[in-house]
């Protein structure tokens, strides 16, 4: 295939302990480290490996968001992507609009495969890939841990609740990846320098006819309910006594 499209979302870094703003209007993101959504990083790694095996000729990374998302796209280019597209908007944008925006890029670029993370670690929605596949009228293989390409189709191993499911999909298709698909490479300094020269195209969201106003209103953000402070026991006997007390053994 010619092209693989990979979605990269800018999110609060995996290691940051997110706090809700005291007025309930959102979560604290000021001065917080931002990164590529870890699942998307795995998606990009897989696309790069497919290209390195000679099964694709170009890897394009796409992000939707503010100009700051350029940082994550540059990181993607440093990892090895060939070019980047930023669909630019300063508004918050919901999953369906994201899928519609990606569809516009898919129609323009005609990729053989679109690879996304199975979910973003900010909203934890797990929706965009499925929605994109539906709008595109193409197969989806979600929560993938392995993909084997064979010309016109792909055999995909999916992590499901009862084990592993293997499906076969015609290409082009949308793949969303799970944690165990691969371990993303580290970016090397010379690659960061090289990435600065790779093309990064900016497309305003309005130019592709997507209305960003979200249909779902997020009206209140709260911290989760805390669990009561527990007790400590000294040994196995103490633990069993405490469990017996609660009628659990």
């Amino acid at each position: 295939m010619d092209k693989i499209l990979v979605g990269l979302k800018r999110v609060v870094d995996y290691n940051v302990r997110v706090r809700v703003k005291t007025d309930g209007s959102g979560v604290e993101t000021d001065g917080v480290k931002m990164s590529i959504n870890p699942f998307d990083e795995i998606a990009l790694e897989e696309a790069l490996r497919i290209k390195e095996r000679g099964a694709a000729t170009e890897v394009i990374v796409v992000s939707i968001g503010s100009a700051e998302s350029q940082q994550q796209l540059r990181t993607g280019l440093a990892m090895g992507a060939d070019r980047a597209i930023l669909i630019q908007t300063d508004d918050s944008i919901d999953a369906l609009s994201r899928a519609r925006a990606l569809l516009e890029i898919a129609n323009r670029e005609d990729p053989g495969l679109i690879i996304l993370g199975k979910q973003a670690i900010d909203d934890d929605n797990n929706q965009t890939g499925q929605m994109l596949a539906a709008l595109w009228g193409r197969p989806q293989a979600t929560s993938a841990s392995k993909v084997e390409l064979d010309g016109t189709h792909a055999r995909v191993t999916r992590e499901v609740d009862i084990g592993l499911e293997i499906i076969d999909v015609d290409l082009p298709a949308v793949l969303t990846v799970d944690l165990r698909m691969n371990e993303p490479r580290y970016v090397k300094l010379p690659d960061i320098m090289k990435a600065k020269k790779k093309p990064l195209e900016e497309v305003p969201l309005a130019d592709i006819g997507i209305d960003p106003s979200p249909s779902l209103k997020e009206t209140l953000f709260e911290p989760p309910a805390e669990r009561q402070k527990g007790v400590m026991v000294d040994d196995a006997q103490g633990l069993l006594a405490a469990l017996k007390d609660k009628g659990l053994v």
């Binding site: 999953a95 899928a99 934890d124 929605m131 539906a134 989806q140 499901v160 609740d161």
Partner: peptide, 23 residues
């Protein structure tokens, strides 16, 4: 919100032209 529902429901939502509330 099992792997079955996570896979299926957003595809339904998109075909209906609406967003989904997950979880």
């Amino acid at each position: 919100s099992t792997t079955f529902g996570k896979d299926l429901m957003p595809r339904v939502a998109a075909l209906l032209g609406v967003n989904q509330i997950s979880d």
